[in-house]
Computed example of a mutant assay.
Amino acid sequence: MVLASRRAEVKEAFVKSWKSYKNVGFGYDEVMPVSGVGRDVPGFGGWGATLIDSLSTLWIMDLKDDFYEAAAAAVTIDYSKTRDTSCNYFETTIRHLGGLLGAYDLSKETALLEKAVELGDMLYMAYDTPNRMPGFWLDFRDAKTGKQLAGNHDPSAAVASSSLEFTRLTQLTGDNKYYDAINRVTQVLDDWQNRTSLPGMWPTFFDLRRILLDYDNSYTLGALADSLYEYLPKTFALLGGLEPVHPTKQTFCFRETSGSTARDRA
């Protein structure tokens, strides 16, 4: 009874929020909390982040009518049209590509997978740099002219948290290029994991232009780095434990009250 009651309250809260978005912000990235109007977030492309991000939740909560209405709108998004000159590669990957793939895995609606492939091919261009490392921004003009460079001070989470989406896209399409792209970043993480000033962990910021992961001495499991660590066990599970690199990344320097660390125990 307690579980059912809590589940009902969560669903009620979501439905209230979704109705607000549907009524005043449908198709926008978000709804402003005070003015109550729809708004596109700079760097998000104006492609309806909340619309895509909510698809899997709509399905899981059995709001199928709303799901199909939102999915129908999602597959009409034209990712080639935006007022922005670049998009946030990380946010577009986790919200749009991840949202489309999650919705497809739940519903098996092929139009969602086709849209995911379309977007995946665009985001794949983020790896078209001299050393095949992505940057924080996917600059559309630089991508067209082959002038992209990896960043030299990018949050580690932003450039190393695409393994789930790109791996799953390869699994669903059979096209290895997506996995190959993200696996190059994984190999860099593996190479540097025990060479940083806090062996076992990576610093908050990366210089992927020179592939130097030891110039920054700040560390965190919070914002700017969180999803880097979050994705490792999830990718390990997605690959069924078959990728030998990922098991080596399941131990980090988490300090216990005794003063020992996961690395000490490994």
Rank of each mutant, 00 (worst) to 15 (best):
T145A: 05
T129Q: 01
L55W: 00
L119E: 04
L100G: 05
E69L: 10
V34Y: 12
K115R: 07
A225V: 11
D29H: 09
D65N: 11
A71K: 09
Y68P: 12
T173M: 07
W59G: 02
K11E: 15
L149I: 00
Y127A: 06
T110M: 15
T85L: 15
L221A: 14
V117E: 08
S156K: 05
G240R: 07
E69F: 10
T93Y: 10
D142E: 15
T93N: 12
H153I: 08
F44T: 08
V10C: 12
L224F: 15
P155K: 05
D78K: 03
L113M: 04
N194A: 12
K16S: 00
G45T: 07
E9S: 15
Q148I: 01
S227N: 15
L97R: 03
N23E: 02
V75Y: 04
K234P: 05
H246P: 09
L113H: 00
L198P: 02
D105K: 14
L242T: 13
P199F: 07
W18K: 01
M201F: 00
K249T: 13
G146Y: 07
L97P: 01
Y219W: 08
L97M: 04
G200I: 06
F26A: 01
T248E: 13
L221N: 11
F26C: 02
T220H: 11
R7Y: 10
L100Y: 08
Y28S: 04
T167Q: 10
W192A: 05
K11T: 04
G99Q: 03
S161Q: 06
T257N: 13
N183I: 12
R255H: 13
T110L: 14
